[in-house]
Design a protein around this nucleic acid. Sequence first.
RNA 1: GGGCGCGUAGCUCAGUGGGAGAGCGCUCGCUUCACACGCGAGAGGUCGCUGGUUCGAAACCAGCCGCGCCCACCA
Length: 697
Amino acid sequence: LDEGYVTAVYRVFKQLYDKGYIYRDFYMVNWDPGSRSAISDLEVENREVEDVLYSIDYPVEGSDRVLTVATVRPETMLADTAVAVNPSDERYADLVGNHCLLPLVGRRLPIIADEHVDVEFGTGALKITPGHDPNDFEIGRRHGLEEISVIGPDGHLTEEAGRFAGLSAAKAQEEVVAALREEGRLRAEEPYTHSVPFSHRSGERIEPLISLQWFCRMDELAQPAIAAVERDEVRIAPGQWKRVYLDWMREIRPWCVSRQLWWGHRIPVWYCDACEETYVAESAPERCASCAGELRQEEDVLDTWFSSAIWPFATLGWPEETPELRAFYPTSFLTTAREILFLWVARMIMTGIEFPGAVPFRDVYVHSVIQARDGRRMSKSLGTGIDPLEEIDVHGADALRFGLLAMSSTQDVRFSDAKVQQGSDLANKLWNASRLILLNTVEVEPAPRPARVEDRWLLSRLERTIASVTGKLETYDFAHAVQEAYAFFWRDLCDWYLEIVKPRLYDGEEDVSATLLYTLERVLALLHPTMPFVTEEIWSFHPARRGHLAVHPFPQVDESLFDEAAEADVEAGIGLTQRLRAWRDLVDVPVGSVLAARVEGVEPPEFVARLSRFQFAPDGGDPVASVGPVRVLPSADLDAEAVAGRLEKRREELRSEVERAERKLANEGFVAKAPAEVVEEERGKLERYRSELDELG
RNA sequence: GGGCGCGUAGCUCAGUGGGAGAGCGCUCGCUUCACACGCGAGAGGUCGCUGGUUCGAAACCAGCCGCGCCCACCA
């Protein structure tokens, strides 16, 4: 409706017309009786339908032979203008050039030979109805056959149908079958399942009709658009869609661009009824140039995708040389659903190259499709759609956004309420963890200030997470990107680091405050694209806040904070803590009790004892159990039987591990052919299992 | 008919050559001073089937079974 846009559409139509790409022709189109309009091939959807296949005898003129033909649309026989057989079919070779007599009508039908006919199907004889079947139309044009229309745009039979005129196609079918039966021409009726075109718009069965329409020839426009994708001037990801695009483009067919609808850009063509002149123009001519008569504008409108095809530049003011067009064209990135690849993306590329002279975008990402909860397509007509506003009411906008990203994949996935709930839980956790940090840190400039090994571990993990998330976003791997950010925040920061540093935090230590505020700032920025609302709100309380988080730079990786040694030490400490906790659980130690223990060898980080409720002392008698390097000392809280049972279970686990490693290393092929580091790793494992087994006694 | 993809824990999905993973659900224990939308600990899988390649296969190859999508003019 925007005037500037209409100008652009008309300019495009006129230029394509002047180049000879746009033309008007009688042609077989997909007629949608529901919307009473032609529609394009791409708007047609094929569905399996159970029909009846009728076999009808067509007598051969001047002979007692008959040709039996098969059809699921017997009413269209009224428009038959030939019978075709395959040229290699010896059964009928002598009949080619003769005529059949069309039952009910009496028309003389030439018997022709055409490669299209399948010798194997039915009797190998095919009735030809150029007016109502796309194949027959092509065959008809090849052989110069008459094109008769017996079904009109309203789905009812025309005057051409003689005594059947005025009937609906369905009713006509019944009557034609009855008449054939009466004349003894109906040889067989059998159930037949086949795929049938339906209108994507109205849902009605397509009626192939010949009508006068506007077409756009696509092959010239397609060539540079094919080259652009071949040369990766437009990159299509995931890679398989590049080939799908190219395959389609290489076999592109003329595009029927006219529609008999009210909505749409009216085709910029004017007719003079007096002298039969036709004008194609960017704006309405006043009068006919030849006779000065009144002009009448074409009533058909353009396919909606015709105007959408020029969207990337028409919205920026093209054909005017606007500042917007100069600044923003070509654009960089388009994300889209795959069913739009042909309808829209391909056409934008073609018109972008043809008109402004440059591809409209550099990268196209074809995303996965979220299906309904039960795995069916989301669809308005099936009622399987999921209303995002309802989801937002229940879980929140951030939760839905997180959930959708977490669901996304290279394949189609079902909508998962659990993933949205996970997002909602994350928002809640972000809020609470931030509250802990913001209410307990002292006033200090946020900065990485590692004072202990756990600080170096956290900062190293933070930077590695930023690196990894960034890499995954760049390759459109959204699900893993958000899952990785989620795992760092929840596991590393909340479950471990915050629990480890609470005493230092409550003590008002500056180093840990600075490090935590720094980490929080980076985590908020990292998660902001995924959860914009809650991160922005938390940011408003952050002491480092300058302006909105939405315009805060996305975190850049600081590799100087990578620290492999700290990671190894802390992760070993975490592993030991988990084993100690599990051991306590399994031997039923009372929850609050602190057990005495002694450590053999290197002292683990301080937090291990605290988080597993142990007290490590240099001495204290004979141990009653071993957990890795930890020797648990006797205590009133320990049930001797449970401890012994647990010991035995651990021994069994270790024995089976030792056995597995030994078996592998005993395999000569493995030792000889596997890479040295893999063999070495296996030897290391075996050694560790054996020494722990020795410790247990 | 052609093409693409999928079949892994109860559910939804990751994992593409060296000891089976996540979220949810389930079991047990915790009202521990950020969070019970939470914390800790667990159980649970002949990785669709059959062959093959390999020292080694959930992963690579072939065939089969089941499911989905796209394209296509067999009446």
